[in-house]
């Protein structure tokens, strides 16, 4: 039987974020019809790219301008509108990115209709309603069976290689009128559209520093290197707890969970908790003075060296 599958498109400055393409590729399975949910954007501009990845229906969700309380940025309002879209188009499964935005949106949707949801999954089988995600601090992989009328999947960014599948599409207009959020008002929405900083969770390359960086000033060396590599800057818990960098840069169990193509760990010993956040990286390169550090035996390449000397050399070569 044909399944209607919705994908929530995450935008950045009006453009489709790169990590959407892998998610759409994961959603495009046997006997599926793909609906892209585009919120507050000009869908005409996005049409060619969405068609290239197999989207046949673009649901253009717009908000009336006269709404109070900045509904366009209110995740509680979005969740309600998206549930209406799901009902309108008889959607069987919804995919979204397990990003900061997704984590504030998809569980709201799941809660409204008591639908099953797996966040941070990296494999989905729509024929058998199964999803795979990591559990127990990334030490195990769980295969989870979802039961319900509508199934929700929060997909880990970068976990699937994007594959094109050209089709043509139609745009369906959906007015999200008269929906308010009781109890939650947006006072200030952080401007997530400013892409001056490369997002840790979605970065292709991450340069991260730990105890071996020794102080806050030395993180400037990593920053310069990351800039040349167009990489995001990460850190271990030690670096965060020492006050060298803000918590938002922490990778690990209690920080961001990342899967970049390349993870360069500088002066990071590689605790179990740090691994929980980066073990699904494509390639891990470790630079550490201590050849017995845990990370040296669980990476792809390692150099027994002082990151403070290697990184400036690396920056020069880029």
């Amino acid at each position: 039987m044909m399944k209607n599958v919705g994908v929530i498109i995450e935008l950045d400055n009006g453009r489709v974020k790169e990590s959407n393409w892998g998610m759409i590729t994961l959603a495009r399975q046997k006997n599926t019809k793909l609906f892209a949910f585009v919120i507050n954007a000009a869908p005409g501009k996005l049409k060619p790219a969405l068609e290239l990845f197999g989207i046949t229906n673009i649901v253009d969700i717009c908000f009336a301008k006269d709404w109070e309380n900045n509904p366009a940025k209110n995740p509680a309002v979005w969740a309600k509108v998206l549930i209406n879209v799901i009902k309108e188009y008889h959607i069987d499964a919804v995919f979204g990115l397990s990003t900061a935005m997704g984590k504030d949106l998809m569980p709201r949707m799941a809660a409204l209709i008591e639908a099953p949801l797996i966040m941070d999954c990296f494999s989905v089988d729509l024929e058998n309603n199964l999803a795979k995600t990591s559990q127990y601090s990334g030490k195990t992989i769980a295969t989870i069976k979802l039961t319900g009328d509508v199934l929700l999947f929060g997909v880990r960014p970068n976990c699937v290689e994007p594959v094109e599948a050209q089709v043509s599409s139609e745009i369906l207009k959906f007015e999200g009128t008269h929906i308010h959020s009781k109890g939650l008002k947006v006072i200030k929405a952080g401007d997530t559209d400013k892409s001056s900083k490369i997002n840790l969770a979605e970065a292709d390359v991450i340069v991260a520093g730990g105890r071996g960086m020794k102080n806050a000033e030395n993180f400037t060396l990593l920053f310069l290197c990351a800039q040349k590599l167009k990489a995001a800057l990460g850190a271990s818990r030690v670096a965060v707890d020492s006050g060298w960098v803000p918590y938002s840069m922490q990778v690990g169990q209690t920080g961001e969970k990342v899967s970049p193509i390349v993870y360069i760990a500088c002066g990071i010993s590689g605790s179990v908790q740090h691994f929980a956040g980066m073990k699904t990286s494509g390639m891990v390169i470790a630079v550490n003075m201590d050849e017995n550090a845990a990370i040296m035996s669980t990476c792809d390449y390692y150099a027994v060296a002082d990151a403070l000397k290697i990184i400036p050399e690396l920056t020069k070569l880029l």
Partner: peptide
């Protein structure tokens, strides 16, 4: 509705570390 864990497996590390040697410039 529900979610049920039907299988759990350890996440095994399949990396085989290779050393990069040399002075700072060579390693970079």
């Amino acid at each position: 509705s529900s979610t049920n864990i039907i299988a759990l497996e350890p996440l095994t590390q399949t990396r085989t570390p290779e050393e990069i040697t040399g002075n700072a410039k060579e390693i970079a």
